[in-house]
Design a protein around this nucleic acid. Sequence first.
DNA 1: GACACGATGGGCT
DNA 2: GCCCATCGTGTCT
Length: 207
Amino acid sequence: MNRLPASFFERPAPEVAESLVGHTLFRRGPSGTVAGRLVEVEAYCGTDDPNSHAFRRTPRSSIMYGPPGILYVYFTYGMHHCSNIVCESDGTAGACLLRAVEPLEGLGLMAARRGLDDPHLLAKGPGRLCQAFGLSRADNGTDLATGDVWVGTKRHLDGPVLRSYRIGVDAATDQPWRFYEPGPWTSGLKNPRVPGTGGPGMQLAIG
DNA sequence: GACACGATGGGCT
DNA sequence: GCCCATCGTGTCT
């Protein structure tokens, strides 16, 4: 199994987020292995990004200041987990939020964890993705180079990678750091706000 | 110790 | 589109 090395993540978070789309996320557990192709990733930076947990350094967010290629899992809204991959070099804050994957392997296990069968609802959204992959705060700090969670080196895209503003954050201070491949596996808005197009409905192709 | 709120998602109108 | 459950985390007292 070829894993992306830590050096892949030792770059600015938006650059890592864009290049992560199309790669496959793996999770090996006692019940089996699940895998899915990343189709939606958001970048969160450090002290200059007011929407990032790392805008202020706290015990929870300090992991974002650590070495790259480490899993950052946090709990929110009393019922949901969100998983991120730490980016930037050791000492600089940054992370990529994994928002959605196309399920590829272990769909039965994902369905059992999610309590439903529809493949389109297995891992569409950061909370659903964590549930389908069995990720919780116990996985916080996992090293993607050696642990039971990793990203494969192969990249496959079914379409262009687009960008928009991020979901669920303060719109007034937001940056266009959401990267996604449009399609049935992607969460978020039907007509995401995008920069410099004068309104919703327009999408900016990149890469 | 108290309190406000959230990088969401499910259910209902 | 609207409502809101539910509790860890951060901030303030």
